[in-house]
Amino acid sequence: MKISGSYTVPIPRDEAYKLLQDPVILAKCMPGTDHLEKIGEDEYEMKMKMAIASFSGLFTGKVKIADAHPPDNFMLLVEGSGKVGFLKGSGLLNLTPQEGATEVKYEGDVQVGGTIAAVGQRLLESTSKMIIKKFFEKFAEAATQPTT
């Protein structure tokens, strides 16, 4: 499944680029995740508890940052698997500066398998969009909060 879209975050590009690769920030923004465990260069392991209304699932997964071209773009690779299925996503994030803000364009491919793929077909695209939207909303929030 191909997905693409864009969000504008209210911080300058250099800062957005840095924060989008910050494991502490990523952990805050990924749904159902509170901690990323570093397992390699730009590679982290995590547990995600996904919950959308009645739907819930526990996933273990990895996040990896690749092909980094600061401050323009990088690839974000996410994978997770649990008893109800697995997902693999790769997305190219392109950052364009705007007045005091940054437009983040993403373009990627999501692969879903297992029960969620077999029975959740009609909701998959909307779910992906919703998760990405939530990610950026949380990101905008986290990015503008003073670090503690």
Binding site: S54, F55, S56, G57, V84, T115, I116
Partner: peptide, 14 residues
């Protein structure tokens, strides 16, 4: 009508 099927598929586990 929605919750029970999701539970049977283990997509929901209240």
């Amino acid at each position: 009508m929605s919750l029970i099927p999701m539970m049977k598929l283990r997509l929901a586990a209240p």
